[in-house]
Nucleic acid binder design. Structure first.
Lengths: 229, 229
DNA sequence: AGTTGTGAAGAAATTCACAGCG
DNA sequence: CGCTGTGAATTTCTTCACAACT
């Protein structure tokens, strides 16, 4: 009974509450350590892993210390162990069922996005409310009426919301009623959901506007034509 | 003489260095205040604006206090003024030229994304390196060889990187050489760029994995079949 | 009276620096 | 000897609470 990850689930590892800030960095570490493992390296130092992940070594060590499995002092972290621990910690041992709501341009593109499989995510349905789209095929999936989400034969864990802002709140309510646990929202609206449903916001225009700020800032800093070179 | 925003630029407003955390909230406020203004309201309180933007009133007031234009005590903020101030502050007075690199599924979908215009962003080109794609049309744009980015007739301010992870670093280098100021990176790789180029990362799989964590967490909290209802 | 702007307090995140271990 | 794990110091962010102003 020293085994912590016995059931291939989170069991026993999640005791302290880990801040969301930390959680949001773990997938990056997972991605990085998998890339490093793919080159044949068996261990990796906090220095290397941190640099390749875009964070400082101390923050990386603090983060990893939270998940229970220690690295080896003088050596570093075992790539295999670390990847397995991260996957388990993130709840990726069993693939999460993901549905896309919105079979427009963006939804269709995301449906074909290769980055799901192999990352612990299984795209299992795509929904829309537009009769013209229902029944059409995207990749290996058939677009289904959103009304059928609640009765879908596989429980949907997560939803990618790829509908216009005006349609997002109603769709979110349907998803929440259906027992969905998380929504990744591409619509530029703050969604109100019961606290059983966590929302993460991805707003393309906002991100670009942040970049625009720095772009304009630089233009004014060096008012003359060129900096130097 | 007294006019601060005379040249329709940032001039004089940007003195203190504003933390990126704050900057990244401003587009949300802009979005919210525009929505409110569209309903005909002329002023809005920090309470309302904050709630609709998903932040606390105090943080909203702190954020807005940084941009110089005060609200009216006892009344709130003028929707028109605030929107104009935010746009100006973010460098959106002149539309930023945006290019998409990568004319695959995602790049194509983003190219058609309606959310650019009216948000101070002008999509002005889409590039790829695949000869089969170059010359094809997406929306009103023709896919162009990435090699032509450097000599493009309009200066590209910002780039949306929608290429596979393996191709991203090379494409980022080309963009950086061409004088691009910001990259919104959809590829799951940390990009190394000169500090003239700011990168913001949007990783779909990572976002879903964060949601997966909370999803799995809940599953273990309430072990029995249903909540109630 | 009502709502902003803002110091001061409090909380959270990050970095430091080094003890502890392999 | 090298690298992790971690308390303590530091920095950053958020909230509080109220004076200032319309």
């Amino acid at each position: 009974m020293g085994e912590i990850l016995s059931a291939g689930s989170i069991e026993g590892v999640v005791r302290k509450d880990v801040p969301e800030r930390v959680i949001s960095r773990l997938p990056i570490y997972l991605q990085t350590v998998e890339t490093i493992a793919a080159t044949g390296q068996t261990t990796v130092s906090s220095e290397t892993l941190a640099t390749r992940s875009g964070v400082s070594p101390s923050i990386l060590r603090k983060d990893l210390s939270q998940l229970g499995r220690p690295g080896r002092r003088g050596v570093g972290y075992s790539c295999q162990d670390l990847a397995a621990t991260l996957r388990s910690f993130l709840g990726l041992d069993r693939a999460q069922n993901v549905a896309i709501i919105g079979a427009g341009r963006l939804g269709s593109a995301l449906a074909d996005y290769a980055g799901f499989r192999g990352r612990g995510l299984r795209l299992s349905a795509i929904f829309d409310i537009d009769a013209a789209k229902i029944g059409t095929t995207i990749g290996s999936l058939t677009v289904t009426d959103l009304a059928e989400l609640a009765a879908w034969d596989e429980d949907i864990d997560l939803v990618v919301m790829a509908v216009p802002a005006s349609a997002a709140p109603a769709a979110a309510a349907i998803a929440a009623d259906a027992g969905v646990r998380g929504i990744l929202n591409f619509a530029p609206t703050v969604l109100e959901t019961p606290d059983t449903v966590r929302v993460r916001q991805v707003d393309l225009a906002s991100e670009l506007q942040v970049l625009a700020y720095y772009s304009a800032l630089d233009s004014h800093a060096g008012t003359s034509e060129e900096h130097s070179n």
